[in-house]
Design a binder for these strands. Structure first.
Lengths: 336, 336
DNA sequence: GTGAAAGCGCTAACAG
DNA sequence: CTGTTAGCGCTTTCAC
């Protein structure tokens, strides 16, 4: 079932069928009607592949993410597909499973079949990235500092988020704070770590990860370290920490404050409701598309946008134990 | 930068370049080496579009989901992309945003650019589905009864899951049970509802939805209806219900048992840990790919596989209040 | 207004 | 083993 079949049945040339189906108004209405009817009756649908070849553009963009099972990414991808869809673009997604090697392979792979690419929080090293990102393929990179910039970028200022958290916590009198750190390959994690060490050199950093399981495993160490507040790499980790602290009999926020990052929907429904840094996920997806689309059009260099996170205070943070007006003393407590 | 450029620089024909790059062993090692070197130096990457046209297959499959922000689907999509990736296939995903109209449009759209399609829990009516599913395009449909079957299918037996829940609850002495129902367009919801009404004709059904917000809103009604146990359409809804019950001062599981469906990762970390029906999400994705791949190959009709859910009992369910050995009485209680 | 013809970049017979 | 020759299905000048 090709355009030729329609042309033959309708008694016109393939060019005419093409014109009609692409909405050109330079065709005799009678013929146009006949073509439309025939093509409908035959159930004809043009091959996007062939169109892609002929037009030199596939109207498809790729997005590669580290882990689609992490609630952060589906929201970004969703907003991106919806936005791109409105402009007639499809989105192919690739999941690298947090593996930098796989990520590089996927980038190259996907690059061969798309008009543009968005790299979501890529985990690969900068040198590797520079190697595989095709010069000439419109690309936007999210949540990943690359200096000098090799692509357009859309960032969320994680450092600012961390600062807001620290301010919040210190205002509550917390002096001993632990950070359950995310994957070392995560650039956002590095940003947060940087901000943390700058504002609070004495913070205890506990390598953790990005899943609840890992938060569960690490939370005890935070308690043992005498922290009165624990900042988690993301909400999932915070959920795990919350569960572990409960198991340990440590009251939240009474004895320990907990804060997350992301603000996934469930954060508002756990108990205690999680204080967290809201990252504008949907906006990240939308803006990524816009920035990419701009490059697709005028072939320009591509913008660099920076989005702001906002601290959402709920129930999991509270006054430090033993905190006084001008608290200096650290509320030491035995772990678990 | 096309295959012709490489051919010219390497002093061979395009066919030879093609052969080398596709790993055919029928080429003089010397030429092959030269070709590989030139193509690397030039940074040449074949266009997947052109290959697709020439080969008559794009090595891309589509998957359309109702809502990527619902944690059920990313896990399915992830497993699917990983499985397909291993066989050299890319996956384009489309998110219909729970809108049947949009879904139909997306199906047609995506169909034009892929070798195969998986419809994940499609929300459109059967008649519409029948209209847009392209005869001849390998397709698998998940979680959607279509009779007579118009495609291969991979189902999770939701009814069985519901039965297991009811058995569990009645063994605990519950007699008055409420169901916070999911979207009416959801086939799984219909299955669960069917099983519920068959096993427990007196159950109270409260139209709810698929999000925590909605569960939060509906939970009070369940309490007011005098239920001692509430079954939720999914874990997200259950999280909402849990939050509302806590706000209402209703103890779980002391005064009210709560169960969900899906078993998303967070279910094990909320408090109380959620009793839920685990749906094999990753397996659903993997099997969907396998069934699709089989059709891609031998052009066969496509299998019909059925996956079993399993009840995971955690902390949110317990003995009905006032339940006796042979409980008959209903534990009536005032709503919050 | 409409058709003929020339590709888009690649693969796959088919000769040699 | 390697090159030549046809296309894959569509779009798009360029004449008519």
């Amino acid at each position: 079932m090709t355009i030729a079949d329609v042309a033959r049945k309708a008694g016109v040339s393939r060019a005419t069928v093409s014109r009609v189906l692409n909405g050109q108004d330079t065709v005799d209405p009678v013929l146009a009607g006949r073509v439309r009817q025939v093509s409908r009756r035959l159930g004809y649908h043009p091959s996007a592949i062939a169109q892609g070849l002929a037009r030199g553009a596939s109207h498809t963009v790729g997005v590669v993410v580290p882990d689609l099972a992490n609630p952060f990414f589906p929201e970004v991808v969703k907003a991106l597909t919806v936005a791109a869809g409105k402009d007639g673009f499809s989105v192919v997604v690739a999941d690298s499973d947090e593996d930098p090697e796989a990520e590089l392979r996927l980038i190259q792979d996907v690059s061969r079949r798309v008009d543009g690419l968005v790299l979501c929080s890529p985990r690969a090293g900068i040198a590797d990235l520079r190697r595989v990102v095709r010069k000439g393929l419109p690309t936007v990179c999210t949540n990943r500092m690359v200096d000098p910039p090799l692509t357009a970028s859309v960032m969320i200022d994680s450092g600012r988020g961390m600062q807001a958290v620290i301010r919040h916590l210190t205002e509550l009198g917390h002096r001993r704070i632990a950070y359950l750190a995310g994957p070392s390959s995560s650039s956002s994690n590095a940003d947060r770590l940087g901000a943390l060490e700058r504002s609070l050199p004495g913070a205890v950093v506990i390598p953790t990860g990005s899943k609840s399981q890992e938060g569960y495993a690490s939370a005890a160490a935070a308690a043992e370290a005498g922290a009165t507040a624990v900042i988690c790499f993301n909400d999932l980790v915070a959920f795990g920490a919350l569960a572990r602290l409960r198991a340990l009999g440590v009251a939240v926020p009474g004895e320990m404050s907990v804060v997350g990052f992301d603000d996934i929907p469930a954060a508002d429904f756990v108990h205690p409701a999680l204080t967290t840094v809201r990252l504008p996920k949907a906006e990240l997806g939308r803006r990524s598309w816009e920035v990419l689309r701009d490059q697709l059009g005028d072939h320009g260099a591509g913008a660099s946008v920076r989005l702001e996170p906002t601290l959402v205070v709920r129930e999991s943070t509270g006054k430090a134990i033993g905190a006084t007006e001008d608290a200096v003393a650290v509320g030491e407590r035995a772990g678990g």
